[in-house]
Design a protein around this nucleic acid. Structure first.
Lengths: 214, 214
DNA sequence: TGTAGCATGTAAGCCGTTACATGATTGA
DNA sequence: TCAATCATGTAACGGCTTACATGCTACA
């Protein structure tokens, strides 16, 4: 029954849940950031490092995540024997100089995430589209500048799509990541549609240039 | 050569430019808000009233907009005779109780907007998509809940599309608003594509439910 | 030896929201 | 006369970014 969290908090909890299902050590803030860069950024945002740490501190305060000093950074790749979750106060003498902290979602955190997934009406997406915004004022520009604007966008779009494609390939058809794969496909289809629309708009601009020179 | 402005500032300047080309009185903060609600919100955001006023004050301070007290609120619809831009210090005695302020873009403002349109590389759009974010964690949910989520989104999408369609209709094929019309068409195509993608995803979720029950 | 990556944090500040306060005008 | 709309603003605060500060490890 925690106080209201931001959507970004839940997004991070989501990343931690995924990790919990595939490993036992938890994630450092740094790793969390990289995961956010890999997937979250396409559908939400990838928070700044500094925000990740503040967020982690907040979630920790609420008991939604727990953290331990990271002593076990790459010991031998033992299957089972190593302590997966070392205790806070490590036995006296072992000054292992822990290099960081590893965070795991707690049961409470899991419950909070589930609550959010269930009873919160998902808000309508917010799109901040600088290209569309500029096109809106296209009559202030030379048609060539408008075409350049749209071409620039197509380039970025292609690069973004390629990045997402890489992510998608890594997911493969593993049923464990069926939903992430669906969302990646969504993103790819979105980029494709966007590119097609923009190409259409470019044609329109070019046609307007030939026919009625304003 | 003004200090850096936020994109939202330029968006408001854009609305003021449009107004300047079709009227001579300028806009009140309130009217600006309504225009933002009509178009800006689909591709950017519609700022809160309070922000519009603060933004207007800032732009005024930079000399990018000018404002006058609003005395001429709907006099007779005279074509030409009425003073379109009353002086600040109105003649002594006329205590017309100006109900507000009307803002117009200045030449400097226009130049700043043009500069921005020309030499700023348009950033890549930012999409904050709560539905995609939730779908990402779909394995934590009952497939039925996932379908509900997507259905809810389809509903909202249809409503949003209808709103934008209304806007689009008003623009018609008037060449003066060719670019706003293009952007509206872009939005409509985007909503259509989004709906199609989501329907596809729903089918996938349903198929997954029938075949491998996880 | 130095650069890149790993790792964590604090401080300042911007952008934007909600809540609050105020008051005039219009029309049912 | 009451509600809705027009109209303008201030205050508090949340979320997030950039800039800054620190230090370790791996490797070329």
């Amino acid at each position: 029954v925690p106080a209201a969290l931001s959507t970004t908090s839940y997004a991070l909890l989501g990343l931690l849940v995924f990790d919990a299902e595939t490993s036992r050590h938890g994630l450092t803030g740094y790793e969390l950031k990289r995961r956010a860069d890999r997937t979250l950024r396409f559908y939400w945002v990838s928070p700044a490092m500094s925000q990740i740490y503040t967020e982690l501190a907040r979630l920790g305060g609420l008991g939604l995540v727990e953290s331990r000093p990271d002593a076990a950074s790459d010991g031998p790749p033992d299957g089972d024997t190593a302590p997966a979750w070392p205790d806070e106060g490590s036995p006296a003498g072992t000054t292992d100089a822990p290099r960081g902290r590893r965070y795991r979602i707690t049961q409470t955190g899991r419950a909070a995430l589930l609550d959010w997934l269930h009873d919160s009406q998902a808000e309508f997406p917010v799109l901040k589209h600088p290209v569309a915004l500029r096109l809106l004022m296209g009559q202030l520009l030379d048609p060539r500048a408008v075409v350049d604007l749209l071409n620039g966008y197509l380039d970025r779009l292609a690069r973004q799509r390629a990045d997402l494609e890489t992510v998608r390939r890594r997911l493969g058809d593993n049923p464990d990541v069926r939903h992430p794969a669906m969302v990646a496909d969504w993103g790819l289809a979105y980029y494709d549609s966007e590119a097609e629309i923009v190409r259409g708009l470019m044609d329109r601009v070019k046609a307007d240039t030939r026919d009625p020179p304003d």
